[in-house]
Design a protein around this nucleic acid. Structure first.
Lengths: 200, 200
DNA sequence: TAAATAAACGGAGGCACCTCCGCTTTAGTG
DNA sequence: CACTAAAGCGGAGGTGCCTCCGTTTATTTA
């Protein structure tokens, strides 16, 4: 069964060290740029700020959509990773609250990308199922941990909370959107804490 | 109730004669260009070939999507109009066959615009319901007329035929797509004529 | 018909996209 | 270490997008 190993080789040969570095730097910078200026951020600018030529950017990401997709996947990755980290370093209820605040940031980015993402999500349907599954999974484990620790009430589940957060996504795009969302998260946490075993 | 008339005025004030001319010419030329080169046809080229400046094009159609939408609607309009005309000038079964051939052309265009249309159709949902309703309506009346005249069998309806034509849209985009589709239409017509009152 | 005015025109200019290919760097090899 | 092939780099240049505003033209009014 050594063929298994050999069969995996052609899947993706490792990049040269410099190429790897440049690629990472590009994604890094692109993430910032998209967050700051929306998906229409200038690619030439991104290349320049990453310290590479525009040609290099295009070799790694043949279209703007490729780059957007990679950035988006990285964002989701980060969000899920943060869930684990926060769970390790904070009491379960605090971890949940902090994570939900971060979730707000993530949504903010996602709204910025809206038009472009819509096309991406209809074109590349695995993207949607992949990412939404991972995010709700991360949330579920935070909630279950907090409930198990008696820090929040036990009669809600992840889908209830996701539903409650739905309001954030669909809320109108006013300038105070960020603060409103922050308050919504706090409110939600108070509701979750009330009636927890530990608070009686 | 004269207010009715006055209330309609602000809806859309009439364009100046030259503006009207230019607008029509632009749509005309754009239709050709999109058919020939796909949605990515150069707008500057379209303006030039229509004999106007690029500024004029942008005043009439602030984005590429606007222009695409207008062209697309016009196409649908033309298709429906052709149905009436063919019905007037040919025996019912011939009219149906000719119309289906024209339908193939329409689909060909639509496929060319696919990516761009997909975005348009998700963004502007009335567009889809509007146009697909009108097209299937046109087809329905041709079929009913042919059936009533005994030129085709009476045990099929428009949705059956639409379903059969579905294969055209989803067929792979090979170079001989056009001929294949033409043959499919002929085949379908033979099937429809077989067993008609008039053929027994 | 002439003057006045609002509507429409058009294209120069600035910016971003993306391709192409000669040059540079890396990672093996003797 | 020196050499080499392959991988990667980068930016000039050609093209299209779209805005802005001085000029032209249709229409209205007198």
């Amino acid at each position: 069964m050594t063929s298994e190993a050999t069969r995996e080789a052609p899947v993706q040969k490792p990049l040269r060290a410099d190429a790897q570095r440049n690629r990472e730097k590009l994604v890094e910078v692109a993430a910032q740029a998209f967050a700051a200026d929306g998906v229409d951020a200038s690619l030439e600018d991104i290349a320049k700020r990453a310290g590479v030529g525009i040609g290099t950017l295009y070799r790694h990401f043949p279209t703007r959509e490729h780059l957007v997709e990679v950035v988006y996947r990285r964002e989701v990755e980060g969000l899920c990773h943060a869930a684990e980290e926060l769970a390790r370093e904070h009491p379960a209820d605090v971890a949940l609250e902090l994570w939900m605040q971060r979730f707000v940031d993530y949504i903010a980015t996602k709204r910025g990308l809206a038009t472009s993402l819509r096309l991406l999500l209809t074109t590349n349907s695995t993207l949607f199922s992949d990412t939404s599954g991972r995010v709700s999974g991360a949330m579920r484990s935070l909630i279950e941990a907090a409930a198990a620790a008696g820090k929040i009430r036990a009669d809600v589940d992840a889908s209830d909370v996701m539903h409650a957060l739905g309001g954030i996504y669909s809320a109108p795009n006013t300038p105070d959107w960020r603060e409103r969302s922050g308050r919504l998260v706090k409110l939600l946490m108070d509701g979750l804490r009330f009636g927890a075993r530990g608070s009686r």
